[in-house]
Design a protein around this nucleic acid. Structure first.
Lengths: 129, 129
DNA sequence: CGGCATCCAGTTCGATACTG
DNA sequence: CAGTATCGAACTGGATGCCG
């Protein structure tokens, strides 16, 4: 019954790898992780550092990372309130794998660009020449 | 003028890293790449192997990978037609970085799961206890 | 300062049906 | 066998406004 399937969608925890990959690519996660890898940041500090991000997305991103245990959130009972975010050991351990992909991307970025230019708009077309 | 910005959205090629990450996480790419890393596959062979994927998405995924130069597509003029997909050297070179992330995900998957369980539904709540 | 709730546009993905 | 085309549902991400 494809018309009334209440499938929650997000049921498929396919494999942990895909799960992790999807999380990283929610557009800001990687950037936030990279920044926090350098030093702890305050909420608005991150907001200014990334600059293109909305408060909504920054909060969401941090929440996910916190929930997954990659980022720690510490509240200082000052006035006005201050909140600091930093990488947990688990978060730090993830910088390595990220780095591997990052290095590959940087190293082969031009190859991909070149391939795209060749493929252009008709990747499968003009194939049976 | 935030009310009439015609921003095409998809203009920001942020950094090659984010770009690559987003590509990988389109839900099927990683899986396809992993399968092709083992051996060449025919179109329907991939379709059967993944099983949850629709033809539409399989085709799109393969197109992107082909356009980016990670996968090669070869048509055999048989009847009925046969098409074989295989990793290019660039695609093969990417198995390493993917492996790094994959290994991390497998190794720390339970930690993430545990963190999520702890955080539960109130990650930020009950923090000032 | 830090954060959440609501609304809304753009994109992604699946189901389905049709072609060579 | 190997796709392509179209539609609609779901998800993502941004803008805005209110609260502690």
């Amino acid at each position: 019954m494809p018309l009334s399937t209440p499938v929650p969608a997000a049921e498929y925890e396919a494999c942990p790898v895909t799960d992790v990959l999807r999380r990283l690519s929610d557009k800001w996660t990687l950037l936030v992780l990279t920044l926090l890898g350098q030093r702890p940041y305050h909420y608005n500090e991150l907001h200014r550092a990334i600059e293109g991000i909305s408060r909504r997305m920054l909060t969401r991103t941090l929440r996910v990372l916190e929930t997954d245990g990659l980022v720690a959130r510490e509240v200082f009972p000052t006035v006005p309130p201050t909140v600091e975010y930093r990488l947990t050991p688990l978060g730090v351990s993830f910088l390595g794998p990220i780095g591997a992909v990052a290095q590959w991307a940087v190293a082969h970025g031009d190859e991909i660009t070149a391939a795209r230019r060749r493929g252009g708009l008709t990747p499968a077309a003009s194939r049976g020449d």
